[in-house]
Design a protein around this nucleic acid. Structure first.
Lengths: 214, 214
DNA sequence: TTTTTTCTGTAACGGCCATTAGGGAAATAT
DNA sequence: ATATTTCCCTAATGGCCGTTACAGAAAAAA
């Protein structure tokens, strides 16, 4: 019986290159299914997305899901990682590619305004919203650690800026970093609550006024 | 059978004064039970708190809960209202009691840092976190409306400040208000993620730098 | 072709969810 | 005292949860 598209036999790009096994190959593209799972978890959160929801949007049966991704927890873990590389990388890029700490943070905030309101996909940030009030503490903690790591990365970039002489030596790097993290997370919440790209860009621009004069 | 404390016969203070009915009075204090429900929903969110959890912390059976508060939805609605008056009123007080818009917002942010990290109770704001990724859209929307109403109240106070000549007439009141809302919501998230009162106060103080010089 | 391996679909598992029916207990009113 | 009203406890409801046994289909290897 072939009631679903039997496309992409060869295990889509980016999948762990299995040694071309002997049996029947899976009939769905793993990466495409993972993308659907990302969107579902992004929009409805970890507990708001049932396995039933997942099998529906991924277009596969429950046994196929468990065979390809393990249980719900490990699928979510993979989703979070893939989200980071596919949708959350703007943050790291801003921090590494800009010449000054100030420019890095300004770009990070400006791009967040666009990313969090991009049409055709869920608003806001998966890492901020997908595991709030989670019955499974490990899941909630995993995203909390990512958020705190993000703040730490911002502080580390700011410290580098201070070391480079861009900023006064007495600047409170920890407070500046936490402020940036709070603004980003607040922008994500605002995006979920209906704020537009332009409104968030105005917030981002305002937030940069806390920096010492350039 | 009397296995629970039979205190507070007279329907606690603040309860809707029933006409002193004829039958057996309820054996628990409604306000105390409601307070326990507030704490439970505050910490674990609407869907993260089961009716089973509620009956346990409230110290009553499920039928008593349904008789006294209606179903889970209406209990949550009452919880949100009571939370607003018992724990969330600092915001309105700051907006109405201070002489200038700037002082009002500064106090609001400063007090949020303390409220959101108060020991002995859940961190952060119930309105921000208790209905994220909710399977019941009405519940999620009800808190969203409260958040947006809060931003609107801030903007209204800022506009009054402009009208009073405290601020330049060309200030972007909407952006300033949304920025304040985003910072508060971000502070709430940071409090949930482990930030201390002092760290949040530093964020609040930084955030006030976006205001035009006083 | 036959054999072997893996995937897929059906259907079920126990467990927790929110909610409530029903009977007996408790307290007031008479 | 009895009658009346209301509450509380036990236990159950149907429904969805995440997960998996099982059987058969499909494709590769021999």
């Amino acid at each position: 019986m072939v009631n679903r598209q039997a496309a992409a036999r060869q295990a889509g790009p980016g999948s762990e290159a299995r040694p071309r096994g002997r049996g029947r190959p899976r009939s769905f593209d793993r990466e495409t299914a993972l993308e659907k799972a990302i969107l579902a978890f992004w929009e409805h959160g970890y507990e708001g997305t049932s396995v039933s929801d997942l099998t529906e949007v991924m277009g596969i049966g429950a046994p196929s899901l468990y065979a390809a991704f393990g249980d719900k927890r490990s699928l979510f873990a993979e989703v979070v990682t893939a989200y980071g590389t596919r949708y959350g990388s703007f943050s790291d890029r801003a921090l590494t590619e800009e010449r000054t700490a100030r420019a890095a943070v300004a770009r990070m905030l400006r791009e967040a305004a666009a990313e969090y309101t991009e049409p055709g996909r869920p608003h806001g940030c998966l890492v901020v919203h997908a595991a709030t009030n989670c019955t499974t503490p490990e899941v909630e903690d995993s995203l909390r650690e990512r958020r705190n790591a993000n703040v730490a990365a911002i502080e580390s970039r700011i410290k580098a800026g201070v070391a480079a002489g861009e900023l006064p030596a007495d600047v409170d790097t920890a407070a500046l970093a936490r402020h940036t993290g709070a603004v980003i997370q607040g922008m994500s919440q605002q995006a979920r609550d209906g704020a537009t790209k332009e409104q968030l860009e105005a917030v981002a621009e305002l937030a940069m006024r806390v920096w010492p004069c350039p």
